[in-house]
Amino acid sequence: MIGTVLLGIFLLCTLLAPVLGGTAAAGAAVMEGAGEAVSFCLRIAGGVCLWSGVLELLERAGVTARLGRALRPLLGRLFPRSAGREELLSALSENIGANLLGLGNAATPAGIRAAQGMARLGAEDELCTLVVLNTASIQLIPSTIAAVRAAAGAASAFDILPAVWVSSALSVCAGLAAAALLRRVWP
């Protein structure tokens, strides 16, 4: 899908360059963009690696697992059918716990195990709810974008945290509300 978008952008901007921003600017932009991608990665790599190290500490100290266990009652209400099965509930709590800490590498395999279990169980509505929860970010510490802000000279890279929490909470609520509404009217 993103490939089609790239094709569209290149065709449109190259063919229309003479009438839009100018041919010289378009030619320079492409090569500069490639260099910029590498220097951008170098600028944020320090922050990303440091944060990845901190998350590894939390993971090894069992914080992810404990967070997941604390969420079990809530998950039981959101996923009543799946919560009856121990292996599904533990995959779900692992998925949500890892998502809260921003551990994408741990969240996805657990989420997929839960999704497969729900499909076997025939719990289609609960599978859709799981997808809605995973597509709305519930990450508590958005470390990558904090690294980008730090690299761009932010006075305090994490001062966006309260705003991110409010916005995440509102969007998760909106997603779950839309889910509750749509599941009634959808065939």
């Binding site: 952008i9 901007c13 839009l20 378009a26 492409v30 963009g33 991608a37």
Partner: peptide
Amino acid sequence: ALVALFPALALLRSSGL
């Protein structure tokens, strides 16, 4: 991924679209 994406976005930006 960014090496593939940045040039396209830079081109897009230069076009003013």
